[in-house]
């Protein structure tokens, strides 16, 4: 993770070099730094840093979009005259081993449409999720594994 510090340093340096320490120039510096570290990665000992960086950005945007979608979904459910959903508590087996990755997954699950993480098993192998649309528990399980776990794994690997 020392590359992350280098990356932030590069962003600040870029902003200072362009003579304006403002938000857009910092953002620009972060992207330019990402490109530089993508090229320098093999030399500095982390050949996948650039890829992971862009995957993390993509994940952040995907997450913001899902947050918006979940707000719309809650609005539709609240304003519908009859309450027609079948909630369920589903166990999702985890392949993530990194603790930070599991925390990220649990947080993302809680803020995306229809799911809320309730508990984690003692050996950290299984996340218990409350879902509002549990007609098909298998589909809910697969959606979490496919949409979030795989993307997070790509960032942390």
């Amino acid at each position: 993770m020392s590359l992350l510090g280098l990356h932030l340093g590069m962003a600040v340096l870029w902003a200072m070099a362009t003579g304006s320490l403002t938000f857009p120039s910092l953002l620009m510096g972060i992207f330019v730094g990402g490109g530089v570290l993508h090229l320098l990665g093999p030399v500095l000992g982390d050949p996948r840093y650039g890829i992971r960086f862009y995957r993390a950005i993509a994940l952040a945007f995907f997450f913001l979009w899902e947050l918006f979608a979940s707000g719309i979904r809650v609005a539709i459910d609240v304003l519908r005259p009859t309450l027609s959903f079948t909630p369920a508590v589903v166990a999702v087996p985890l392949e993530l081993r990194n603790e930070a990755a599991i925390v990220l997954l649990a947080n993302m699950v809680s803020l995306t449409p229809g799911t809320l993480s309730i508990d984690l098993s003692e050996d950290r192998s299984c996340l218990y999720v409350h879902t509002m649309y549990g007609e098909d528990p298998e589909a809910a399980r697969q959606a979490i594994k496919h949409d979030f776990e795989e993307r997070i794994q790509e960032v942390f690997r």
Binding site: I118, H130, M132
Partner: peptide
Amino acid sequence: FPDVYMRMHAATKAGTL
């Protein structure tokens, strides 16, 4: 919403957004 878990769905997602 009818139970505490669904109420948390509403409060967490839409409230944060």
